[in-house]
Design a protein around this nucleic acid. Structure first.
Lengths: 145, 145
DNA sequence: ATGGATGCAAAAGTTTTGCAAAGAA
DNA sequence: TTCTTTGCAAAACTTTTGCATCCAT
């Protein structure tokens, strides 16, 4: 699912768009920075390399790459906007509401849930990226939950 | 689980806080407006009744009532901040990424998932309010999914 | 050379904060 | 009376937009 740089460049040029250094830098940054990359994190990263690259361009390019289905956009649980490579592996998180710790949740856990959904509802759930909230081991005692 | 106004007022006064008309209006508004009430919606509502009530007060009171565990705060999938009564029934939504339709998902569907989680992970998931994304019946054909 | 992309700066939208005045207890 | 809470206005933060210039093709 993940495409290399050359493939993406070709796709963009074929569609009549241009492959600029800014677009390459921004795409590289998202790729490198990981799963939930905010525009600000991208800006911090690319701005060190290309100091004239503006926030406006970061926002515009992230939006553009999302339209081109190269990136995917998501609003995180804290309301912040984030991006990641569109073809990323399905991944899920357990977020502790008390200490904000982040735990990975293997995709397999959701398999049965998805099967239930498929069987009972005529709605195709996109389970590429879920977050669940609650309290981790260390914090279960502290809260009166 | 839901408390009446008198009970809430008593709790606040017992804790050394004051029960002002603004706080009552804002709480009533959240209660009346339903499940995912944005600060702006609250403002629109209360501003008609009390034209001098400011946005700052809306934000401060919503935050305050959340601290008091009378309201619960959530960031919705579109990144917007919303509140609802803390004791609300667990409810879940299926959100269509194409047409933005909202479908209710009964809590029972998540029961087995929760049991799996309880058995396998030492993490207490809060399943009071989940949203899943995907594509509804009408939109499954249109998208190349 | 040509039209799409960028940089700058300003605007728009949302949420927070300082401070003097108001008002609940 | 006391001290919390409010209203106003301004600030802070995030994201978008207009427009002249630049540059990938």
């Amino acid at each position: 699912m993940s495409q290399n740089t050359a493939e993406i460049s070709r796709h963009l040029r074929n569609s009549g768009f241009r492959v600029t250094p800014q677009r390459q830098l921004i795409l590289d940054a998202v790729c490198k920075l990981g799963e939930h990359v905010t525009p600000e994190a991208v800006y911090d990263h690319v701005h060190r390399i290309a100091p004239t690259l503006s926030r406006a361009t970061v926002y515009r390019v992230l939006h553009f790459l999302t339209e081109q289905r190269i990136l995917a956009m998501v609003y995180m649980a804290d309301g912040h906007l984030a991006y990641e490579m569109a073809g990323a592996e399905p991944h899920h998180h357990l977020v502790c509401r008390t200490c904000d710790s982040l735990f990975e949740l293997p995709h397999s856990v959701l398999r049965s849930f998805r099967q239930t959904m498929d069987a009972q509802y005529d709605f195709e759930i996109d389970v590429s990226h879920l977050s669940f909230f609650g309290h981790c081991t260390d914090c279960r005692d502290s809260t009166g939950a």
